[in-house]
Structures are given as C-alpha cells and as structure tokens.
C-alpha cells in the first residue's frame, strides 16, 4: 500500500474527475485461460467459482473502482469475452481518495 500521506491533492482536482470504468464479462464465452486475471496491471479481476455453460470458471470483477481503463483485458482476451467502457467521470473529490 502506498502511504496515503504521500498523496497531495492535485491542483485541478476540483475540475477534473477520474474516469470511471465499467467492466463487462461475457461469462458464457469465457474458456478460463485466466489471461485477463493474470495480466491486469491493477488486479481488478479474480477467478470466480461459478461454472459457466462451457465448463470454465470465468473471471469476476472484484475492484472496478481501481480499473485504470487501460483495456489490456479487452485486448488480451482470446475469446472477446471481456471489455471495459468508460462511465461518466467521477466528481473531483476533496480528499483525492477513491469514492
């Protein structure tokens, strides 16, 4: 964990909010290769314990707020089974912490 104290509030925090991600997993397309789980730089995904139609355990989103919208999961998925979309921007926040 990065010590919270090291963070100073960006000067333009009032004006500019962080993008907010929405991650979609098309569960029944997943074959369970785990690339998205393994290579997400923010570790936003985890293997679920819910078997899908194909007999695989698709990923589940565990930390959507932490998604940086790099969309690496979308690009690395061999099954076209996961994608991110950018939701409306979050309000700039006083503390600069996640909401």
């Amino acid at each position: 964990m990065t010590p919270q104290k090291l963070w100073r509030k960006p000067l333009d925090a009032e004006k500019i909010g962080l993008p907010k991600a929405e991650i979609h997993v098309i569960t029944d397309l997943c074959k369970g290769c785990d690339f998205c789980i393994e290579f997400c730089p923010k570790k936003v995904l985890e293997k679920s314990n819910k078997l899908n139609k194909r007999g695989a355990y698709p990923p589940k989103v565990v930390d959507e707020d932490n998604c940086a919208l790099c969309s690496f999961c979308t690009a690395i998925c061999p099954e076209f089974a996961v994608f991110t979309i950018e939701k409306e921007r979050r309000e700039g926040s006083e503390s600069g912490e996640k909401q």
Binding site: K31, C33, C77, P78
Partner: peptide, 8 residues
C-alpha cells in the same frame, strides 16, 4: 482451445 494465441 482455451488459452490459444490465435484469439489474441
């Protein structure tokens, strides 16, 4: 197959 690079 699962994990095949062709899809990527």
């Amino acid at each position: 197959c699962e994990g095949c690079g062709n899809g990527i």
